[in-house]
Amino acid sequence: MLKLLNPIMRLVEIPFLLVQKRLGIGMTAWLFLAPNLALFSLFTFLPIILNFSYATTGGEAILLRDRPDVGFQNFGNLLECENVLDPSSCRNDLFWRAVWNTVWFVVFQVGIMVIAALATAIVLNRKIRARGLFRGVFFFPVLLSPVVVALIWKWILQRNGLLNAGLESLGFETINWLIERHWAFFWSTFISIWAHMGFYTLILLAGLQAIPQDVYEAALMDRASPWRCFRRITLPLLSPTLLVVLVLALIKGVQTFDEIYAFTGGGPGSATTLIMQFIYETGFGVQPRLLGVAAAAAIMLAMVLIFLTALQFWINRKKVDG
């Protein structure tokens, strides 16, 4: 087979050799990169530049030439606050409500999800019965579309949903889960954990399987307790994977939009409105379409995400450097 391929490859090589001879090695590399760079520029760099342009213009026109320059007014309006801890004191209260909702959502969702994923991964790493089935069961929600996740849970939690029917049949008082602010937030966090935990469980499971068994065997010979094994062996050796999971989950958590939007619509009131929904609604959802404000909010969100991504790179590098 190789004998057959070699002459063909030599034929293909000829034009590249000619190009390399003419342009030099350095320029040839750029030639190969050019198609990807062109697409990357068109679909990534250009939108970033456009986003900055929108953030510094006002009005509701969609074409930049029709939009008046307003400098940093959109950023100023978003950040104008007497006390950032109290959204009611801010000029754009809905932005700050979305910011704080996102902060609390990420704290609870990521915190609980990582702990639950770790516990699940540890259990699934043991030689339990039907281990393959359970691995599938925990991973299954990850395969579902966010809208499907939202609709399933809506049917369960609505006033006449499955959960209330169950509670009623057991003689308990029913609760209107999606109308009460705190319950709506709780369930939004819960379904997000349910939907994404399987993915992180899988990563942690891979991390657990990479820990050499002989370390545990040595610890058992020294009569170390399971808790001591977990604290002194599992956690330290899993910590690089755990950190990657944490940062990935943080980034994903900040970007959460679709499942919560389909689940509660951001309500009741603004109780489950996250920052991504604020950007969408401000820019596209309701009239007037304040693209400048939405773009300014998107830039602020991007800064947070850049910080979290840099953190992930730093952690990865630290891990590689040992």
Partner: peptide, 12 residues
């Protein structure tokens, strides 16, 4: 019926 107004967010 509280569900109608309280049960959604934004301008939906």
């Amino acid at each position: 019926l509280r569900d109608v107004w309280a049960g959604a967010g934004g301008g939906s």
